[in-house]
Structure formats: structure tokens, C-alpha cells
Design a protein around this nucleic acid. Structure first.
Lengths: 137, 137
DNA sequence: GTAAAATACTCTAGCGACTATAGATATGAG
DNA sequence: CTCATATCTATAGTCGCTAGAGTATTTTAC
């Protein structure tokens, strides 16, 4: 039996976050002690570790809910789980691509600034004038 | 004189977002028509374009407020604007680095899944067991 | 056995940067 | 003048937590 604090220490998920996941239906409401405190079994520990890992990988609460539901039906085909993971991978790749463009713009802006006055500041001018950009964004 | 809709069409910033920027103090409260509707000058159009551009580049409202304040004092040295741009560049680079790691993990997870049942699904198992990961995250 | 310290409880509000809705009013074209 | 479209304010919702207040319980030390 673990208290919410034990669970938090062992999974690295903060206490209010655990309660939040309960509210969101990612984990079931656990048993309570006589004094109304949450008491967890090992099962919940593993489930929470799964959630933590998936969140670290950037999956949404929604996606995690789906994956958890799937994992409770081991006899069904796993194409759906694949689909969720693949979709997420695509989203991550797109984010990277967009950030690389921004990186490029910012590099150009930063690179050429010397030691002069605002009125003549490349940072300010570059931000004000979109047409100075090299790529679309 | 532009209506808020004109401004929106010309800058690509949605109408409620323009009003939100006004609330946040990024743009001044404009004149009003007899019937209390917002009427903008060209100045506001340019300012909004600046804001839009900076947001696209991922700058926070806070940072943009700073830059706008700076741009209103052209006599001051521009080291401050430089600093903001540089800080932001560092943040973007860090974001990219983290996403690349996630991409790697997700690729590994997705790659090896064939056509089988949830009970034997790599996606699910990999998420449940952090030790299957190659790098820290 | 009791007091103090640590932990947990619920409830509410806040973050950032919007987005959506409802219900009322204004504007512009025909 | 009518009617469609545009705009107004105010409020609440989004996501995924996080923080705080005020109260209650559990654990530890003596």
C-alpha cells in the first residue's frame, strides 16, 4: 500500500498532478484510509509510470487515455496503438521543422547586430518588417 | 481608418486576439466610431504586424512588450533588444534538442511494430517500461 | 501516551495565449 | 427601410498542470 506521497516519489509525478490525473480519469479513484487518505496498490504505480513516460514523450492526456483503454484489451489488434504513436511522431517532426526555421531567422537577426542605437537596430527592424525574412513562417 | 475586421484580414491576426492584445497592453485602445466600434490608423496596422511576426517567431507577449517599449526609445543603445533575441534563440535551440530526442524514441517505438495483438504490442510495452529507452528523457 | 512534525485532504484560483459563446448593437448595400 | 454582416461586451472554456488556504490525519520522537 502506497500513500500519494510514496507514489509521487517513486514515479516523479507531483502530488497535485496525481490527483489531477484521477480527476481526468487516467487513474481510478483508489481506496481510502480510515482518515480519507488515498491508498494505492502496485498496479496504480505501474499505471502512473506508464502515464508519466507517455507524457514525457509529449503524448496528450487524450491520447494516453486511448492507449490505456487499448491496453486493457490484450486480445484486440494493436493497429490503433500504432496509429496514435505514428501520428504523434508526425506532429513532433513538424514542430522540429518549424523550430528550425525560427532558429534560422533568429540567427540571422542576432548575427549582424553590433553596438549601435535602437533607431538603427537590426533586431527591431527585422521584427517590424516581415519582408526581410528569408523563408515563409 | 480600418475596422477591426480590416485589421484582422490584413495582418492575419484573429479579431478576438486583437482585442486580447489591447487588453494585454500590446496595442493602445484605439478611437471609436459613433457606435462604439474600434477604428484604427495605419500605425496600429504596422504595430500589429510587428506583434504578429514576433509571435510567429515564438516570442512571448512579455518579450514583445519589452521590444515595443524599446523601439519607442530610439536613442537608447540596442543591447537590450539584442539580449532578448539571443535569449530567445537559446530557448529555441533547447526546444529543438529536446524534440529530437523524443523523435528518436518514438521512431524506435513505432518502427518495430508489426501486425499483432495489444498483449504483444511494442508501443504499449515501451511506454510501460522506461528501461527500454535508449536515452534519458 | 502525547506532542510535534510531516503529510494529506478539499476547494479554489492562476498560468499563457488565446478561442468560443451569448445576447445586444452598429454598419453598409440594395 | 430592411436585412445581412460585422462588431460590441462579458464570461467561460481550452490544456496540463501548479499554488495556496485552511483543515485533518498520520507518523515519529520522546
Amino acid at each position: 500500500m502506497y500513500s500519494i506521497g510514496d507514489l509521487s516519489r517513486r514515479t516523479g509525478v507531483k502530488i497535485p498532478t496525481i490527483r489531477y490525473y484521477e480527476q481526468m480519469g487516467l487513474i481510478e479513484a483508489p481506496e481510502r484510509s480510515e482518515g480519507n487518505q488515498r491508498r494505492y496498490e502496485k498496479r496504480e504505480l505501474e499505471r502512473l509510470a506508464f502515464i508519466r513516460h507517455a507524457r514525457d514523450l509529449g503524448l496528450s492526456i487524450e491520447a494516453i487515455r486511448d492507449l490505456l483503454a487499448l491496453s486493457e484489451h490484450p486480445e484486440r489488434p494493436c493497429g490503433e496503438a500504432d496509429r496514435i504513436a505514428n501520428e504523434h511522431l508526425a506532429a513532433v517532426r513538424e514542430k522540429i521543422a518549424r523550430l528550425r526555421k525560427l532558429e534560422g531567422e533568429l540567427e540571422r537577426i542576432v548575427a549582424r547586430d553590433g553596438d549601435h542605437k535602437i533607431g538603427d537596430c537590426y533586431v527591431i527592424r527585422a521584427l517590424a518588417d516581415h519582408s526581410m525574412c528569408e523563408s515563409e513562417h
